Lab assay of single mutants.
Amino acid sequence: NQASVVANQLIPINTALTLAMMRSEVVTPVGIPAEDIPRLVSMQVNRAVPLGTTLMPDMVKGYA
């Protein structure tokens, strides 16, 4: 099963992502692949992401 990127904390809108904000977890539906975590660092979210939410490509500016 593919691990996805999950929010490790509440991430406010327009926040630049850091490693501490993300974790890898096997979830359904599948979100951004966990191997993309290094690429996500310093990218901004375009909405508030609650703790435990799977990051989807449309939630991260410049990812999709």
Rank of each mutant, 00 (worst) to 15 (best):
A16I: 12
V30A: 08
V41P: 03
L55W: 00
S42W: 14
S4Q: 02
T18R: 11
M43T: 07
I37T: 06
L10V: 09
T15I: 06
M43A: 04
S42Y: 14
M43W: 12
V6G: 01
P57V: 08
L51S: 12
I11K: 01
L40K: 01
P57T: 12
M43K: 07
T54Y: 02
R39Q: 05
L40H: 01
M56K: 06
D58F: 13
E35R: 03
P29H: 14
L40S: 00
E25Y: 09
M56C: 07
T53F: 13
A64M: 10
L17P: 02
M22H: 00
L19N: 04
A34S: 10
G62M: 11
A64H: 14
G52Y: 06
M56Q: 11
I32G: 01
V41E: 05
I11S: 00
E25T: 09
M43R: 08
E35F: 06
P29K: 06
L55S: 01
P12I: 09
Y63G: 03
K61Q: 08
V41Q: 15
P50S: 13
P38S: 10
T28P: 02
T15N: 06
I37S: 05
A16V: 15
M21T: 04
A64T: 15
M56I: 06
L19I: 08
N8Q: 08
N8F: 13
L17N: 00
A20G: 06
G52I: 01
S24Y: 09
A3T: 11
M21H: 04
L10R: 06
A7R: 01
N46Y: 12
L51M: 14
L10M: 14
G62Q: 11
G52M: 10
I37H: 03
M21G: 03
I37Y: 02
L55C: 02
I32D: 00
N14I: 03
T53D: 08
V30S: 10
L19A: 08
T28E: 15
Q44F: 14
P12F: 08
L17R: 00
D36I: 05
I32T: 02
R47P: 02
K61F: 08
I37N: 02
Q2S: 09
Q9C: 04
L51T: 13
P33V: 14
L10Q: 11
Q44N: 15
A3K: 06
T54K: 05
S42C: 06
M22K: 00
V26R: 03
V5I: 07
A34R: 03
A7N: 01
M59W: 09
N14D: 13
V60T: 02
L17W: 00
V49C: 03
M21F: 12
I13M: 10
R47L: 11
A48F: 06
R47G: 04
G62A: 15
V30E: 15
L55T: 00
S24N: 07
Q9S: 13
R39I: 13
V45Q: 00
L10G: 14
R47N: 08
S24P: 10
M56W: 06
R23W: 04
V5Q: 00
R39S: 07
G52N: 14
D36G: 05
Q9A: 15
P38C: 08
P38M: 11
M22A: 00
A3H: 10
V45H: 00
A16P: 14
Q44K: 11
Q9V: 08
E35I: 08
A20V: 14
V26E: 15
A20H: 12
